[in-house]
Nucleic acid binder design. Structure first.
Length: 373
DNA sequence: CAGCCGTGGAT
DNA sequence: TATCCAAGGCT
């Protein structure tokens, strides 16, 4: 025993950790979920390995996003871009348009950038080591560890929200998130320690822990009766499962106000391209005011794309972002085709309504369009 | 390193 | 209606 080791409190003995791993893999082999990007254990045993490009695509889409929401996007992307080279050669605008509705649009910008790096610097072949993956844009600690484990069974330590919840309950970690992340990582690493005892399936193990968190060890009402680690869980023993993970309380969202202008001409509407960085970066939107703490009529008038008689929609658009709630007044007007002016430049675009899906309209702007009805 | 960055579903 | 939060990354 190394007394100099700074291992977290209450780490279990190594033979119990090994037993837990075997129990989890048995549970996974028995009832593992079928996901379209996943190679099932029995196929894995035959030597079938997943397409790293398809796995990468799924992992980027699944960041802070539910499986049901991401899955149709994953199918659509894989059909349109069968290889990473196909994705790299696409226009970024098309990628952003296909991503519209998924949120966290920096992911889409980095996705396209990453495809370019893989195509240019790696001959279109995805790197497979955790270290190499970590250098790519949009790939952080979680995604690098997961792709490396799933695609070639590198014995990485995977820590996502599911793992944090499961581990925090097993060991009753007291330090609230996000500060407690380092403790949780250390405990997760101990459980997936490759030097311990026959850890030959890191990919299946990682997917199994995440499945456990997603389907059994859920945030609100965990079904501990189905859990292979039920007997190893300190929180279960104490009957305090849902008290974990401890988290620091969140602040209430501030409200911001603004106005948007929907200018229609025949079958087209006027769109503006948003700046490349920041909120909804690179996406399209309707011209309008800045979004500030208070609604101001003079600011609204100054933001009109062209002086007209604007009709105000009866209902304002309400939309919740990650760090504020937005309330948008919507104004709309119709203009003759001759008066459209120069609006086919890089920033302003007349978009035909019957092809609006080809434009990178985020959900909030889709709500604005509907409100202008 | 704490704040920024979307959306939709469940409770 | 209010709250949480989902296979996080970047700055």
């Amino acid at each position: 025993m190394k007394e100099t080791s700074k291992s977290p409190p209450d780490l279990k003995p190594s033979d119990e950790l090994s037993a837990m791993r075997r129990a989890l893999l048995a549970w996974y082999d028995d009832g593992g979920r079928t996901l379209p990007w996943r190679v099932r254990p029995e196929d894995r045993a035959k030597g079938i390995t997943p397409d790293p490009y398809a796995v990468w695509l799924s992992e980027i889409m699944l960041q802070q996003t539910t499986v049901p929401h991401a899955t149709p996007y994953w199918r659509k992307f894989l059909a349109r871009f069968p290889t990473v080279t196909d994705l790299a050669q696409a226009d970024r605008d098309e990628v952003l348009a296909m991503w519209a509705g998924l949120g966290y649009y920096a992911r889409a910008r980095n996705l396209h950038k990453c495809a370019g790096v893989v195509a240019d610097d790696h001959d279109g072949v995805f790197p497979l080591t955790e270290t190499a993956l970590l250098k790519l844009p949009g790939i952080g600690a979680y995604t690098a560890a997961t792709i490396a484990a799933i695609c070639h069974d590198e014995a990485t330590t995977i820590v996502d929200g599911n793992v944090e919840r499961v581990i925090s309950r097993i060991f009753m970690v007291q330090t609230p998130l996000p500060k407690g992340k380092s403790d949780l990582r250390a405990l997760a690493a101990a459980l997936s320690d490759p030097t311990l005892d026959g850890f030959e399936r890191p990919g299946d193990y990682g997917q199994a822990v995440m499945d456990l968190g997603a389907t059994v060890c859920t945030p609100r009402s965990p079904t501990c009766g189905l859990c292979p680690w039920s007997g190893d869980c300190a929180a279960k023993a104490a009957g305090v499962q849902t008290d974990y993970p401890k988290k620091t309380p969140k602040k209430k969202l501030p409200v911001r106000h603004g106005a948007a202008f929907v200018l229609r001409s025949g079958d087209a509407v006027l769109l503006h391209r948003r700046p490349d960085t920041g909120l909804l970066g690179g996406m399209m939107g309707f011209p309008g005011t800045e979004w500030g703490p208070k609604p101001k009529d003079d600011v609204i008038r100054a933001a009109e794309p062209t002086p007209r008689n604007w009709e105000q929609s009866a209902v304002e658009v309400r939309h919740v972002f990650t760090h504020f709630e937005l309330r948008l007044s919507v104004f709309h007007s119709e203009i003759a085709a001759e008066l459209r002016g120069e609006a086919t430049g890089d920033v302003a675009i007349w978009a035909p309504l019957d092809r609006i899906k080809d434009y990178a309209l985020p959900t909030v702007m889709t709500k604005v369009l509907k409100a202008a009805h």
